[in-house]
Design a protein around this nucleic acid. Sequence first.
RNA 1: GGCUGAGUAGCAGAGUGGUUAUGCAGAGGAUUGCAAAUCCUUGUACGUCGGUUCGAUUCCGGCCUCAGCCUCCA
Length: 459
Amino acid sequence: MLQIYNTLTRQKAPFVPLNPQQIRMYVCGMTVYDYCHIGHARVMVVFDIVYRYLCQLYGKDKVTYVRNITDIDDKIIKRANDNHEPMDTLTERFIAAMHEDSQALGILSPNQEPRATRYMDEIIAMTAELEHKGFAYRAANGDVYYDVSRFAPYGKLSGRQLDELRAGERVAVDEAKDDPLDFVLWKAAKPGEPSWDSPWGPGRPGWHIECSAMSTQCLGTHFDIHGGGMDLQFPHHENEIAQSCAATDAPFANVWMHNGFVRVDNEKMSKSLGNFFTIRDVLKRYVPEVVRYFILTSHYRSPLNYSDQQLDSARAALTTLYTALREVTPAAGAVDAVYRTRFLAALDDDFATPEAMSVLFDLAHLINRHRQTDPVTASAYAFELKSLADILGLLQTDPISFLQGASQGDDVAITALIAQRNAARKAKDFAESDRIRDALLAKGVVLEDGPGGTTWRRN
RNA sequence: GGCUGAGUAGCAGAGUGGUUAUGCAGAGGAUUGCAAAUCCUUGUACGUCGGUUCGAUUCCGGCCUCAGCCUCCA
């Protein structure tokens, strides 16, 4: 049975859907003012695995996955101004880029990708409801704030008390707020800013309210899983809980999942530190599957250190797996069930992908061992390997394509040289044969003489 | 300062109260014209100091170190 670590309780617990016919998951997605970096890739991949596995367990049509897009906020406005372009043009461009990146990484599309600007009615309605119930107040500057003192469980998700939060206050106190911890629901428009009409005059939503409004609208007041990066735990998710529970009188999300950060040189990869690598830059040097594999080599809650060495290692590991699948035709057949059992048990244990991936190597070894002596068994294990790896979104491309990489226009020349070399070998002209192989190796092409002839791959 | 989490062999990264994780890299052997790939063999690692225990890397406590959150952030 699937166990998931719940940030709310700080322990793993069996996952019990509210309705097994309709599993509902909401993940906080991107703020679209720049290209996605590897940290964003991790969120996408991690929750892609959660989504895939829930589909595996409950059926694809039984799972609803919503990942929002924040397309209105301070940084977006600033960037649009800096670029002298309309905000919509900016956000559309980066939404398109995000979709390119996520498709490249083999991320399954969420069922819905709500954008804040398209849920303005719901955002305003929820804010009004909070004001009506006395959880929100209008400040002298025209902003509407949430009154955290009215929400008794405030701090539960992040394990904090209001007084210790106040003690650690590091930010200049905003005079408009009754309490420094109160957060903004609605910002009164400043000159030149995009704004929407509201009962409080023209303005725009605060960051947190959009997720409460959109998750409620898309999934209902009470749903199964809410996810996002570690850094969203506080204050974003804490505030979402405060808003939603107060506005709807419903429990909101049952399970809170937070993925760990990608690090560079032992530091969080982030925009502000400037130590980030965009997905598209990394994809210029490594094929998407290598990036996906790399992300899955560590457990989703652990830190993940980014380095070329790690990506090289991931590529080498994938080469091993694809080499096992080469020259074997996957076909369903009799296999020892222990591998599937181990694999699924690993994923059942809070999505333990490193553990699950170790099973893939066991299967690869079985294929290699049986390849010559028992091709039927080898084919059966190849089928099992592909089938299990599919749950992780791995090993679904053609092995030859992976091993030889994208055509560089020299495939015909390589094939011709191989023919020449084999002619030389047949004539026992090994000096010539080795010369050709060394020449190809210099171009990054490795030849492999096997019983079925000579094959090649790029290293 | 408060609150989280973490410290495992060369690197990465699982896991367990006493018995091989796994991958990459390395060593030896088989195989190969030579290679590559593959197969076989191979690594006595668990921050530190105490405690519990017949026995702890695994449980408990102190300490040290690191990261994250407390401000926008996946």
